[in-house]
Design a protein around this nucleic acid. Sequence first.
DNA 1: CTGAAAGCGCTAACAT
DNA 2: ATGTTAGCGCTTTCAG
Lengths: 339, 339
Amino acid sequence: MADVAQRAGVSPSTVSRTMRGLSTVSPETRARVEKAARELSFSISRSASSLVTGRTGRVAVLVPNLESWFLGAALAGMAPALAEAGMDMLVYSVTTPEERAHFFDHLPARRNADALLVVSFALSPGERARLDDLGIPLIFVSQHEEHRASVYVDDAEAALRGTRHLINLGHRRIAYLEPADPSGFAWSSRARLDGYRTALAEAGIEHDEELVRQVAQWQGPVLDAAVGRLLSMAAPPTAIFAETDDIAFRLLTVLRGANVRVPDRVSVLGFDDHAMAAAWDLSTMAQPVRRLGREAAELAHAVIGDPEANLERHVVLPVELVPRGSTGPAPRSPVAGGA
Amino acid sequence: MADVAQRAGVSPSTVSRTMRGLSTVSPETRARVEKAARELSFSISRSASSLVTGRTGRVAVLVPNLESWFLGAALAGMAPALAEAGMDMLVYSVTTPEERAHFFDHLPARRNADALLVVSFALSPGERARLDDLGIPLIFVSQHEEHRASVYVDDAEAALRGTRHLINLGHRRIAYLEPADPSGFAWSSRARLDGYRTALAEAGIEHDEELVRQVAQWQGPVLDAAVGRLLSMAAPPTAIFAETDDIAFRLLTVLRGANVRVPDRVSVLGFDDHAMAAAWDLSTMAQPVRRLGREAAELAHAVIGDPEANLERHVVLPVELVPRGSTGPAPRSPVAGGA
DNA sequence: CTGAAAGCGCTAACAT
DNA sequence: ATGTTAGCGCTTTCAG
């Protein structure tokens, strides 16, 4: 910076002011400084400026993994918003118990970022408390936390509307597949299940606990067994609502393998609008995932810029039904096994 | 840090030495300092240490987007390796032309990271040159660059082996679907196509340029048309090799919609072993994507630690055939249209 | 093995 | 509108 100052014939302060775009620099001086900076291909050292301003120009993002479409899309929503605000994105992928222990022990984000975005991450009370120790604003994404900024969708409302869609198609026996998450990593809410139940009640359909089944989110033969159970009931479901598209995809595979026609015999409704949902012709409740990320990033920026900002703001985004080929009218005789 | 020093009754220097794990600290002193640090929940300010050491403790990753499974998996491979080395991961997702211009104009990674990992990013010559201006080691991932550290797979060898697999199943008319990438973002190699051709030549199969078709990677009706073209040839293919699993998935959807049985009438082979390949029962050439990321991260760490390190090291990882249900023996009469 | 002092590159008063 | 000065919190000589 001193070099630039010398070359432009000004003081370091002026260079600093120019680089930060302060208006208190005369146009001519600014031009001269910018030219010198370009010639020396100078760019500011954030380390040095952080040291004095206390701001790092970085936002940290905590995610339970990086391979899921959902998290990728959320990050994809944040990235441009942060870049626009001139902030860098620090990603902490904390998946295994060891990584988890390490992250919460050392809090590497401390003094290293101006805010932390926690995305779909199930926290223990102790971990939750540790995050408060970070001393930077926390923003929860795709999950809500009392007394903290959060950006999420209204799961109950969405599940309510999805279930209504099935009911409107004439379905009365509607199963619900929810993820069993033994790892305890991804944050999940009971809200979707509540919405499903509300819709049934609303339509005067008797709730049958047998129709709600837990399945492993990612793999394992548990899903086959669950589907087998459902299909072998005296009054089998004519529609299945999967809590996530990932489950719906696997469900479709199992049904296809078992020669159960979709949607002729069973309708399938997912949740997320995964990038591949269209290819699978899966009807689903579409979450605005990228927007979730973007709103979170913008909220972070706002909070960082203004310490007086409301640290408890909740942003709730809408979910829309995207009807595709996997949902259709209920078969005339739900109990009939034939095609 | 001064607080910790005071509390432990030592000088700041000693605290610094302790925190960095230097061996020149007596065990008792170390214990005392660590205790004090814990009590004050002190953690070091990277900004301050960077300022004097010149090292940031961060690695930057440049990716063309964040929503693809491939990039997510690559990042997932890097994250633990970097965390273990005590480094943070800065992610730059550069997708639109505006983002692109901004990134290469301002080089936000400059003075902000100790190395840059470039993942599957097609660079113009000018952009390539700009990256050298960064003044930090460059490591190319899933692409190779002369005279620069690179981590990638042997695409030609992999495509050769994949094509051989189809030939071994009795196929003689083998089509090849390659991505047409108008955006110019994803880096793709001609090596796979070369491997395909080599295998055909090796088996004495005459090459038919009509069997090689370009299709949009992500969407659009172009794929339908390409498949239509292939299926309406006088001697249609009995197998189709897709350059990526993403294309293969869409191909399978089109074939299913057209009631073309896989693999009875047409075998389909993909490339990547996408997370969803198993669910689609897609045979594919599996890339070790996470490992690609991990090796790149380790290489970065090695290069950062030792300025004398070989900056041109190339790491080539193996690709394995994962045979699943989408490939099978060629039908007896390839020209017959019936099931 | 430990401490004292200088300074990394920048910004924030305060002058001018 | 611009220059001067004094640190920000750490690491690194150099002494002891």
